[in-house]
Design a protein around this nucleic acid. Structure first.
Length: 270
DNA sequence: CGCTGACCCTGACGGC
DNA sequence: TGCCGTCAGGGTCAGC
């Protein structure tokens, strides 16, 4: 169930076992992901060296000598390092078999995820329109304030627009807005620079805390059963309608906009 | 250009 | 126990 912290947790979990390793074989069992996996991918990846495992927004980038593999986990995807020989389940759509004997296995029941190979990731259609990384020091209150100028869209939708800021999903946007005391439906263009400073800080804090919480379960990646530590994250408002706001005790409210839930404290968030 | 809703798919859960 | 409707963390795209 991946948002940016879960993807980063995954990256850190697999990186030591994958980076610097040679690909023996890419075994694709089901090509029908969000976009069909290219037919010649297995042939092109055989024997390639994985040089680095990076992340851009919610995408994992496996840099290889034949190009960059772009992996997206969609809504229900995960990457694990099961023991060699572990029987694949019905949603285990591809395996990267490494020369070391390790196995990197991709699981995605809903198949909203994807797998692409590209020579120029920065020009790839999935990546080329992405805004700055939220944890980049340059992604600060000043930047958000400038980007929000004259926008009448609610700040929540503004933050979920990957062209403005990359990789923020529903959970962490709700949480960051709570931390910043900002009402999710306030127009993006009607927020002061000072409040954007607070928001930018809140975004970084919420993401960093979640990444750290995920870090405590990194070892689980080796044995495939454990989920990344997303659930151990303490959520203040997300999914908590009717429960007391941790700051003032007022009942957390849930609103629905565009088929998606938005949770906030009607008293603390203005 | 900006916004809305439909859509890709499966699984979990609550109500009856 | 089982069936059915609803909802889910993402992201693109058509249409207005």
């Amino acid at each position: 169930m991946p948002e940016l912290p879960e993807v980063e947790t995954t990256r850190r979990g697999i990186e030591p076992h994958v980076s610097g390793q040679r690909i023996e074989r890419l075994l694709i069992r089901n090509r029908r992901l969000r976009w069909p996996v290219a037919r010649d991918l297995s042939r092109r990846m055989a024997g390639q060296m994985i040089e680095a495992v990076e992340r851009r927004a919610k995408y994992l980038l496996l840099r290889t000598s034949a190009g960059t593999l772009i992996v997206h986990l969609g809504m229900s995807g995960s990457l694990r390092l099961p023991r060699a020989g572990t029987t694949p389940g019905p949603h285990d759509h591809w395996d990267l078999q490494l020369a070391s004997g390790r196995l990197l296995r991709y699981t995605d029941p809903r198949r909203f995820g994807s797998l692409h190979l590209t020579r120029r990731p920065e020009a790839h259609f999935l990546l080329k329109n992405l805004g700055p990384e939220p944890l980049d020091p340059n992604t600060d209150g000043r930047y958000l304030f400038q980007a929000g100028r004259d926008r009448r869209a609610p700040v929540k939708h503004f933050l979920m627009d990957g062209r403005i800021i990359a990789g923020l999903g529903n959970i962490y946007v709700c949480e960051a807005l709570f931390e910043a005391g900002l009402h999710p439906f306030r127009a993006a263009g009607r927020i002061s620079k000072a409040r954007y400073e607070r928001l930018a800080q809140a975004i970084k804090q919420v993401l960093q805390d979640a990444i750290e919480a995920g870090g405590t379960t990194l070892r689980d990646f080796l044995h495939s059963e454990g989920e990344p530590g997303y659930f151990s994250q303490q959520l203040a408002v997300y999914g908590r309608d009717g429960l007391p706001c941790p700051r003032c005790g007022t009942a957390v409210r849930r609103a629905t906009r565009g088929q998606r839930g938005t949770w906030y404290c009607p008293r603390c968030q203005r």
